[in-house]
Each structure stands twice: as C-alpha cells, then as structure tokens.
C-alpha cells in the first residue's frame, strides 16, 4: 500500500491542461497501489489560486508551497523542495508531466533521490505492486514496456497521452513556506521572451497544423496561421525537418525524430511528404489529415483523411469552412 505524489506545474500563472492529466493518472496509480493521490504545487505568493480544482481529478491532499523565489521555475529551487517532500512522504510513485519544465526537473529529482527515471510515458500500470510504464523509443518507431525496480517509481507522462478523468476526492488545500536558499543557486534566468499570448507549444497542443516544403516559401505561412486561428484554442503550428533545416521555421516547431514527438487529437500535415523520421514523431495522433499534391506521398499511408491537390487552393477553403462551422456552432 503506497501513496502517489503528483507534481503539478503552474503555467502563465495558472494550473491547467497537463496538470489535470498528471493528477488523474496519479489517482489511478494510487488506487492500484492501494493508496491515495496527493498533489504538490509550487509558486510565488498566491500559487494556491485554482489549486482546489485538482480535487476533481482525485487529489486527496493538495499542498501548495509559496515562496517569492519560486514564482518562476528554478531547477535548483524546485528540485530541492520536491526532493525533501518526497523523502518525508514515503511515496510508492512520483509523477509529473513531460513538459519543458518536467523534462528539465525530473532527471535532477532522479539523481537526488537515487532512483531511475522513466520519461515521457504513454502508458502506466501497476503489476504485482511495481510500476510498469510504456514509452515510445526511436521517437515512436517502437514502444518499450519498462519495469521500474526502485521506490518511489519516478515517471514523467507525455502531455495529451492520458485522459484527465474526473474522480472527486477530498482535496484539502494547505499552503506551506518552503525552505529555500536562492543565494546558492547557480542557474539564473536573465531574460524570458515568452511566446505570444495564448501561444501553445507543439508538444502540448491538442491540434497541430504542420507545414512542409510544399508550402514553397516561408511567406506562405499565413495560410497555416489562418487555419490555426480558425480551429480555435490549443492549436499550435508544427513544421517538418526540411523547412526547419532551410531556416523557414524555428526548431521549436519541428515534429519528428530530431524534433518533438507529438500526440495531438488532430494533426493536419500540409505539403509534408512524410519522411520516416517525421512519421515517427506524429503517428500517434488520434486523427491525421494530409494535404499534398503527390498522391503517392508516404504521408497518405498514415493519414485518416487525405486531399490530393494544390494546397494553395485547398487551405483557404478549409480555413473558411471551419471558421464558418465554428461560428455556427
């Protein structure tokens, strides 16, 4: 019998998205371990805002550490506070989200706690009291089931891969003041250029509109932006390796084995032929749409729906139809 800790990230000053997935998954794992799920939030003053909502996803307790020095992510600060709580808590498993923050934080926790780390899990179950996870390897060209032979089992879960299932729990929020010593931190953020308001990273987006060499020129990206805007919120732009290598788009948008592996609900591939390393990165999308001039392009082999033709004619029509549909619904 063991409890499970879910570390919950605040983003742009709020709790949401992948945070609910982590708590819901922790709650499921805790039930399998015969224990209960606990949530931990860190931030500056007022970090507890919205934390009570985590109770809907199964958190029995919600601890909020508030300290001005933790209002922005500090790898050393966050790791020290979490490790201390994990040591005190005697958890069977510790879960967090494989976001940019989680990817930076989790290995530090693993080394400090001296436990192995499974990153980017797309499946998790408890087998005879031990945690077994499934995760993509070779960017999704294969999947590995791994048994973690240490306590706590430390796992980061892939955003969008687990449902944020609701299951009501007590969810009493308590705040505490973590003991931290910022003067000892050696990593300091000098400048943050945030993404545009409302911008979503490709690894967490629920819908991705991705462009490839078929777009012909970076100045044509407004066509993809129009489709993104028509599709609503939670939509990110993606890019193939070819257009990133050509300098048309930033590497942050690259989907594939040398970019990001994504699992959105909808992936729209425009002017992307579908090189094997790109397919590896997006084939776990729930629904794939491909628009390409070449009917023999490999992308059509993985696409649920395809349109063959000139993307410069198809895209404006698609954006307009979806915008009209959204306006009417």
């Amino acid at each position: 019998m063991a409890d499970v800790l879910a570390f919950v990230e605040r983003r742009i000053g709020r709790i949401g998205g992948s945070a609910f997935e982590v708590v819901a998954t922790a709650s499921r794992v805790a039930r399998a371990m015969g224990g209960s799920a606990h949530a931990l939030v860190l931030g500056g003053a007022g970090a507890s805002a919205g934390a009570a909502e985590l109770a809907h996803f199964g958190a029995v307790t919600i601890a909020v550490g508030e300290h001005d020095a933790l209002s922005e992510y500090s790898p050393e600060g966050y790791a020290s506070v979490i490790v201390e709580l994990v040591r005190q808590g005697g958890y069977g498993a510790v879960l967090l989200s494989a976001t940019a923050l989680g990817r930076d934080l989790a290995p530090r926790l693993a080394a400090l706690l001296d436990v192995p780390l499974a990153t980017d899990a797309t499946g998790i179950e408890v087998v005879e009291g031990r945690v077994r996870i499934e995760r993509p390897i070779y960017s999704g060209k294969a999947f590995a089931q791994l048994d973690l032979d240490a306590t706590p089992a430390l796992v980061s879960i892939r955003p969008n891969a687990f449902p944020a299932m609701e299951s009501a729990a007590a969810g009493a929020v308590s705040t505490f003041t973590p003991q931290v010593d910022p003067s000892a931190w050696r990593v300091r953020v000098l400048e943050r250029k945030g993404a545009a308001e409302g911008a979503v990273d490709v690894s967490e987006a629920t819908v991705i509109v991705s462009g490839g060499r078929g777009m012909k020129d970076p100045s044509n990206w407004h066509l993809l932006e129009a489709l993104r805007d028509a599709l609503g919120t939670g939509v990110a732009l993606g890019a193939s390796r070819a257009v990133v290598d050509a300098g048309w788009r930033s590497h942050a948008e690259q989907v594939g084995q040398t970019g990001k592996t994504v699992a959105p609900k909808l992936y729209v591939a425009v002017g992307i032929s579908g090189a094997i390393q790109h397919l590896a990165g997006m084939r776990t999308a729930k629904t794939i749409v491909a628009i390409n001039r070449d009917a023999d392009a490999p992308i059509f082999a993985v696409a649920d729906y395809g349109i063959v033709g000139d993307l410069f004619e198809i895209l404006p029509r698609l954006s307009a139809e979806i915008a009209a549909l959204k306006a009417g619904s």
Binding site: I137, G140, K141, F143, L146, D147
Partner: peptide, 16 residues
C-alpha cells in the same frame, strides 16, 4: 534498475 519487459512495434494505423 530499469528492466525491459517487452518491446513492440507500433500498431499499424488503419488504412486511411
């Protein structure tokens, strides 16, 4: 302390 229980190839996507 991390043991491979099994590897699998991804399920083929149904023909689109």
């Amino acid at each position: 302390r991390m043991r491979v229980h099994a590897l699998r190839e991804p399920a083929a996507r149904p023909a689109g």
